[in-house]
């Protein structure tokens, strides 16, 4: 199997997995889920790092790679933290006993 065919299989199976992972989402979680998924899409950091690694110390490539790494990490770090901030609000309070239902 060539590297490309292999990559296509990976693409196909990854997409199918993604379609299956999210079924019923309570509306409460739409915003955090979107924000979390958004953070994950910052996985482009891997591409930025690869670009830097393969740059052979060529300056323009290093700069482009570094810039792209900055954008991607802004997405990743900001995304995960903001999602955590939102979700922390849901879990902070322990259920109160006997209070109004």
């Amino acid at each position: 199997m060539s590297a490309f065919t292999q990559a296509l299989w990976v693409l196909l199976l990854g997409s199918l997995l993604g379609l299956e992972l999210i079924g019923k989402v309570p509306p409460t979680l739409h915003t955090p889920l979107m924000s979390g998924a958004n953070a994950i899409s910052g996985i482009t950091v891997l591409a930025s790092l690869t670009l830097i690694a393969q740059a052979n110390d060529q300056l323009p490539l290093l700069v482009l790679g570094s810039l792209s790494l900055g954008f991607a990490l802004f997405n990743v770090v900001g995304g995960f933290l903001v999602t955590d901030r939102m979700l922390a609000m849901f879990s902070r309070k322990s259920p109160r006993t006997g209070a109004n239902r």
């Binding site: 292999q6 990854g14 998924a37 994950i40 899409s41 996985i43 690869t50």
Partner: peptide, 18 residues
């Protein structure tokens, strides 16, 4: 990068469902 392909595909598909 296969890691990138699989993660991107997963988020792309899950985002579509969302």
């Amino acid at each position: 990068s296969q890691m990138l392909i699989v993660a991107g595909a997963m988020v792309g598909a899950a985002g579509l469902i969302l």
